[in-house]
Design a protein around this nucleic acid. Structure first.
Lengths: 328, 328
DNA sequence: AGGGTCGATTTACACGTTTAAACAGAATCA
DNA sequence: TGATTCTGTTTAAACGTGTAAATCGACCCT
């Protein structure tokens, strides 16, 4: 063993080259798996590199290639239970592709914060990002970064989202099948694609077969506006349909407080099938959307885009399914 | 306006220098806020830079300085409600220091995954990391990365954690004050510092004044072992003390399912004061630990360490407080 | 034997910064 | 006035890679 460069510094490609008795270029070629070098040399270089504990300097190669192998993951909130589930999947899949992931909490859907998040990502060298966007407006500031949008189609960008409309339909059909007639509807902000679709799927199917006695549009944060609470307590429906599980959770809370029993006095349905919806405390009948799959598909789409910037825009729609539980 | 270099490329420091009629070095000095240049030139350079929409290339400066301005944030799980709360605070504070944050889900406390997370971070150029570690073992693989550990002291590393023992004491005192006598204890894995401290604080204070009728050691995942469920249903205590709110939540679930009422039939207490503990559905009496503050202090500690690698090891202990709610 | 091809390897430059060191004036001082 | 400090600015050398282009042999073909 001739040249152990065990001085403090972490070894560079130059050290490896010297130790292996070849040029830097050869080492580079080997380590990038371009099959440009003869098998013998290849093996030798690899061995030496391993022996020295060499690993390529990210900053240098990023500087040279313009690629950082880092993607961003912009979520409206990490405190809600559903986004972390997506973020986790994104991170794992990205890792498989050799990308690291920046998770950023954009602070619940203010367009300014979302634009800011994108800026921060770009500034920190992210190659692209996956985002759950709260506002359609953000589209106008066409970002400097390749973006894959989750939960809604957005023209000019790749997207992955669940079949919200189909989910709404499922809810309505299930309710009808159960013999409900008078229902209340807590729909999400209709400026959001997903909320709109869910609502329309439900309403269209319900038409003529369910009476929507009241409907209140609520923000997707975990507290109900006055109007919604009032409606809940009127007790003039046998079923309350919520735009998502988080809202359903708040509804269950409110009902509990008012000592209205579920499902004896009134039934409740949600949408998402978030992690806790299955627990006895909630036990929520809901529509399951494949959260992990959303994240994984988004990552795949993004790396495809990075490799081929001019590929045609893709939109993936994932199927949903009804999960029957005790709240109905 | 002479030199608008509006060809496609994003502008470099060289473009700015040329446009401003000074050298690259001057531009660099200005933009790094070393007060080396005269006010007039300074202002001029800044203006030109802004006009060109220039922003420094991270890869290049990372290459030169050996600093990436990126920190990692290793959490055992993002699905649990408490860690995202910390992660969010970490991210915000890091941003204030000019650092971006990698959030990594180490997959619930397996030492291998934790070591792997550190490796990934190092490989992706993180300058340091903040970690909630599940296993003490990880300490042995002394990481290549400056680390600040949250939730436990760890020799040789900076740490931030709450006064777990004091919290345990608070719980016991409150229980005594309420007139309880027979209590059940769901303690966490005693291999974890935080669980151990909480338990000891409680047990020491309870000594002779509370009967700990049964005690079961449970993992910190959201499902109870048989033994625990059995104990709950024995109904031989007036109070159940849980190692944290997540466990308490599961307990409430189980009790609900068994139609045991809280707090009429039995009281429940937790630890953490996570986001939902205050909701009517849980309404949990608990000990509040300042989750956000943990994250912020950890970041401060980390950047201090990065600036002064040889500073003495610091450990910050944060105070806790009792939050009275409806479950007792 | 001389030109031509081909594959393996090296040479050499570029990427966009930071920063020590050199430099040029101007101000200060003996 | 000439030597000395100071201040503001520039020059130039890195940092660790990737990769086009040049180089070098070895081999093949008339």
């Amino acid at each position: 063993m001739a040249a152990e460069k065990s001085n403090g510094r972490t070894p560079t490609i130059k050290d490896v080259a010297k130790a292996a008795g070849v040029s830097q270029a050869t080492v580079s070629y080997v380590l990038n798996n371009l099959n440009k070098v003869s098998p013998g040399v290849d093996a030798h270089v690899r061995r030496v590199a391993r022996e020295l504990g060499y690993s390529r300097n990210r900053a240098a190669r990023a500087l040279k290639t313009g690629r950082n192998n880092v993607i961003g993951c912009i979520m409206p909130s990490l405190l809600s239970p559903v986004f972390p589930e997506i973020a986790q999947a994104v991170q794992q899949r990205a890792e498989e592709h050799g990308f690291a992931t920046f998770v950023i909490d954009s602070g619940m859907q203010t367009p300014a914060r979302e634009a800011e998040a994108i800026r921060v990502l770009a500034e920190h060298g992210a190659d692209g990002a996956i985002a759950v966007l709260g506002s359609p407006r953000t589209a106008s500031d066409r970002p400097t970064l390749p973006l894959v949008v989750i939960d809604q189609p957005m023209d000019g960008m790749d997207g992955v989202y669940a079949d919200h409309r189909g989910g709404g339909r499922l809810l309505a059909e299930y309710a009808i099948g159960l013999g409900h007639r008078r229902v209340g509807l807590l729909s999400g902000l209709q400026s959001l694609y997903s909320s709109r679709e869910r609502r329309e799927g439900f309403v269209d199917t319900a038409l003529g077969r369910l009476d929507i006695v009241w409907e209140v549009e609520v923000p997707l944060t975990p507290n109900l506006p006055e109007a919604a609470v009032g409606a809940l307590l009127r007790r003039d429906v046998t079923l309350i349909v919520c735009v998502n599980d988080l809202i359903a959770m708040v509804v269950l809370s409110a009902l509990r407080q008012a000592r209205i029993r579920v499902p004896e006095d009134v039934s409740v349905m949600g949408f998402d099938d978030m992690q806790w919806s299955g627990w006895p405390l909630l036990n929520l009948t809901t529509v399951r959307q494949p959260l992990g799959q959303l994240g994984r598909d988004a990552v795949d789409l993004l790396v495809r885009r990075l490799d081929a910037p001019d590929a045609e825009i893709a939109n993936i729609v994932l199927p949903v399914s009804l999960v029957e539980r005790g709240s109905t």
